[in-house]
Amino acid sequence: MFELLPALLRGLGVTVQLTVLGSILGFILAFLTGLARLSRYSPVRFIAACYVEVFRGSSLLVQLFWMFYALPFFGIRLPGLAVGVLALGMNFGAYGSEIVRSSILAIPQGQTEAAIALNFTPFQRLWRIILPQAWLIMIPSFGNLLIELLKGTSLVSLITLTDLAFQGALLRETTGRTIEIYSLLLIIYFILAFFITLSMRWLERLAAVGRS
């Protein structure tokens, strides 16, 4: 069974790459959009809400296919990896923005008022007072979302990217050892998800240093 591993693990690099790049893009979008949804300007709030609802309301696989097959009709032809990162990142960002928004809203109003009373600039208020506290609330939810993202990367095998799932399908065609291949794949994904869970716990402890 284990002699199948090297061939399968050839796809590990692509899976990890997509998870890392997708989550970086997703984090940036999540913070920008989460803050935009709390903006005092209604057009900003509206645009951010549209982005979130479109990406949360339609399916990730449909978004992936749309970017891969339909975007070229507009003259935009992206390489497969870019499509994967873009679709995963934008999807992740839309879900993540809700985490950012609700965590910021969970910080008591008094914190904002105190920062204003102490003459903090709006940026300092956000950066020094609100976000460090909100961050602590966000971490567990982001951890869950990261695992969703990792699971989502398996879909890129359907737009010809050679990730773990793709190598699995390829190997199945050449060897026909279906049961072993899919069992191994499930175990590999489980180990990757476990690694994410551990890192998020570590991050949580790090963020909680100096707080009760």
């Binding site: 699971k151 398996s154 799932a165 279906t178 489980f190």
Partner: peptide
């Protein structure tokens, strides 16, 4: 286990591997 592995692979497992097993 089921929560942290992709639905896609689970579907392949159920559709292709389960009948064999």
């Amino acid at each position: 286990f089921i929560r942290s592995t992709p639905l896609l692979i689970q579907l392949f497992f159920i559709f292709y591997a389960l009948p064999l097993a």
